[in-house]
Amino acid sequence: MVEPGLIRAAQSGDRDALITLLREIENHVYRTAYYILNNEQDAMDAAQEALIRIYTKIGSYEEKAMFKTWVQRIVTNICIDKFRRNKPTVSIDEHEMVFKEKQNVEDEVLSSYAAKDIREAIDKLPEHQRAVVVLRYMQDFSYNEIADSLDLPLNTVKSYLFRARQQLQSLLQDYQKGGVRG
């Protein structure tokens, strides 16, 4: 939780406060980017872009919104834009990766979902469901906070989250079955 005093200082033009603020949130920003984009380099780029945007737009933050949802809104927007731009090229690689992944799974005969499987599964979700899941689990956001961050109605957030979990569950079940069978 970022201290409100620090935010105010940053907003009033205290550059050191602003840098401190960015340091406090950089991991959160990166984590969201990492799980939405499922790629370390893209996540670095997106997170840096988000931090720069926060740096330049800090003056436009209003206290009626929560700072953390404001930050996450910025980073998810950047990620979703990036994701849309990358999508056509990614899809081919993705298939190959999934294929390799399955081989690995079969070799390892896992008893629980591998973190990698989960990431692969998340990567198969539509962008908004993915963002909802990431905010729910990586940022521990409530329904309302997710709704604020993504600018979505509460019910939409819920239905995205529920559908996402159901789909993840079934994807992972398939992986596991494959592993068990192999």
């Binding site: 840098i19 960015l22 340091r23 950089e26 991991n27 920003v29 990166y30 984590r31 990492y34 799980y35 370390e40 996540a43 670095m44 997170a47 840096q48 931090l51 629980s112 979902y113 973190a115 989960i118 990431r119 899941v133 729910r136 689990y137 990586m138 979990r165 993840l168 569950q169 992972l172």
Partner: peptide, 18 residues
């Protein structure tokens, strides 16, 4: 699934982004 998601590694960037 939910607990797996909860336990996903809290990744951090390899270096300070700031």
């Amino acid at each position: 699934l939910s607990s797996e998601l909860d336990n996903l590694p809290k990744v951090a960037p390899g270096y300070s982004l700031v």
